[in-house]
Amino acid sequence: MAKKTYDLLFKLLLIGDSGVGKTCVLFRFSDDAFNTTFISTIGIDFKIKTVELQGKKIKLQIWDTAGQERFHTITTSYYRGAMGIMLVYDITNGKSFENISKWLRNIDEHANEDVERMLLGNKCDMDDKRVVPKAKGEQIAREHGIRFFETSAKANINIEKAFLTLAEDILRKTPVKEPNSENVDISSGGGVTGWKSKCC
């Protein structure tokens, strides 16, 4: 009866200030598309994308959070289930870069200790409006021992690379075992009442 179309399920989470492009980054990765109109994410959303790494089909369940403070209590309850977290800032928005430490603190407080983290400086196509030098992003990433990419959802720069790299890093830490018998399920994150969708 098992119709599982993947070997592993990785849960990823996108966080960062409102308007930095988290949803666009995800939309580029999942649908290879870009939309210029800004629609603020309400609370939390997710997308699914299956990738193949080292001969394994890996289903990426990517949670997209609202950056706005008013959704904070909803979004933080989804940190717990994440295996990888992408922290996104906007290279044209200094405040979003300054807030990195705040988001890192949120990760420390709400996520699993062994969560794989990654820093993304998005909108790198807008070099004329850049206020955060690439070196500053690299430096803060180095200080926290996390990977860093400058990305552009609009120009499709480093988007796939970032997701695949994060997935690879998680795969590297994943103990080799028989494909688990879990169904294609989506639990709504750690702190929230978990549930499983019945397949078949």
Partner: peptide
């Protein structure tokens, strides 16, 4: 809001399962 979002995401994932 939390409940509605959870239900939305649950239905979305069920849809994906059904589509698969």
């Amino acid at each position: 809001l939390r409940d509605v979002l959870q239900e939305r995401n649950k239905l979305k994932s069920q849809l994906l399962v059904v589509q698969e």
